[in-house]
């Protein structure tokens, strides 16, 4: 017993997503066949196609955008003195939600990881260095993940800027706000202790 071709192809498509195994792919496919209306499918298909037809990486900052340059790079009201470096587009969204940072961003779209075949050339570093020629930029804030790859990438960037006047800073690690000390794990506590500051 085999599924008709349209279903097996759909299963294959769903399986390409991270976190989706063959069983989930099968369930999603059957759900699509049985439950989702034609109009919904048309909308879905168009949305999928639009991701490829209308979206691209902003040539300045690397963020995903449908305008050139992206709305953040284009925003004249933003502070031009600081640049926040993040790993991917969704990090920009999180920081923007906070509404407290009004500088600009640089999205690397990856981190250095020889094991995954990602070297410095493969992430959006070159355009960062070009941007830093702009004398208005005074501070580069590194907002990469606390993974070893994120850490190595931060160290690499710092090293490239060894002889420049730009101040390089890194987001602090520490205790969750409003959290009780006793709920923090030992590693978080240690990082918080190492990163303590005078009040």
């Amino acid at each position: 017993m085999k599924y008709p071709r349209a279903i097996t192809e759909l299963i294959e498509c769903f399986s390409k997503y991270p976190g989706i195994g063959p069983k989930t792919a099968e369930r999603l496919s059957l759900y699509t066949v049985n439950k989702i209306k034609k109009e919904e499918i048309d909308k879905f298909t168009k949305a999928l196609i639009d991701t490829k037809d209308t979206l691209f990486h902003c040539p300045i900052c690397g963020n995903i955008t449908d305008t050139d340059p992206c709305y953040i790079c284009n925003d004249k009201n933003r502070d031009t003195e600081s640049l926040l470096v993040v790993e991917e587009a969704k990090d920009v969204i999180i920081i923007e939600k906070m509404k407290k940072y009004d500088g600009k961003y640089h999205v690397l779209n990856g981190v250095i990881s020889p094991i995954n075949g990602v070297g410095p050339e493969d992430i959006n570093l070159r355009s960062l260095l070009e941007r830093l020629q702009d004398k208005r930029i005074k501070e580069l804030i590194l907002g990469l993940n606390a993974s070893i790859e994120g850490e190595a990438t931060s160290m690499y960037i710092k090293r490239l800027l060894k002889n420049s006047d730009i101040k390089v800073t890194k987001l602090a690690h520490g205790l969750p706000v409003g959290g009780d000390l006793q709920y923090a794990d030992e590693i978080t506590l240690l990082r918080a202790l190492e990163g303590r500051r005078e009040i």
Partner: peptide, 19 residues
Amino acid sequence: KIQKNEIDDYILLDVITEQ
């Protein structure tokens, strides 16, 4: 990768060695 000439970046090697 350096051995196979796929990468030639000694700054990166420095950084990872330091880390």
